[in-house]
Nucleic acid binder design. Sequence first.
DNA 1: ACTATGATAAGCT
DNA 2: GCTTATCATAGTG
Length: 212
Amino acid sequence: MTMTFTEYFEQTDTITIAQQLLGKQLFYQGPAGLLSGYIVETEAYLGEKDQAAHAFAGHRSAKNEALYHAGGTIYIYTIYGQFLLNVITQPEGVPQGVLIRGLQPNLGQEVMQLNRRQPRSVFDLTNGPGKLMAALGIQDLSLNLQSYATSALTLSLTMEKRPLAVNAAPRIGIGDKGIWKAAPLRFYVAHNPFVSKMPKRAMNLENYGWQS
DNA sequence: ACTATGATAAGCT
DNA sequence: GCTTATCATAGTG
């Protein structure tokens, strides 16, 4: 089955997309060659009603403009000097998206190593939203508002690994936002060592949490 | 969000 | 007793 990016990111709800992105491969055609990794951790942000979302209560500005664009749009924002990567979901005007929080390196792991300052181990390379962007070497906003369908940053909707289990948990870094602080909108491949804050004893180093 | 550092707990030769 | 892991705190853009 072949599906366009628009279909994939507009035809179903954001929570489902956040779960189904686990195992999809993210590609970046960078200056040092092709880099890629499998998505292992995501968070869903549900628009105007979601107190933790940038579009809460309809907030709209130049910084979060991408949220209001079509499904498949790249949304990058910065916090504390870190660049964070999102995929916009839902049709134009419905400001929802998915934050990519963890990546299992595949192509160009050596380059990613060089792009990072001081990773403690391979598992420290891309196990966080700011870390994975640093590893890819994306440290500006030039890809913001562009599309995964047509830019140097893309992802495969077909080639994928399959998680043995997907866990849901509260999102990270959410302050006092009522029910939205505890809402289980963070999804990750159970026992995968590239998931942020994964305790070592919970890591499965045999299969990384993937089927076969 | 990340890094660095220190405290506490758990493991191990 | 030493090493490693987990948790807490502070500093930073």
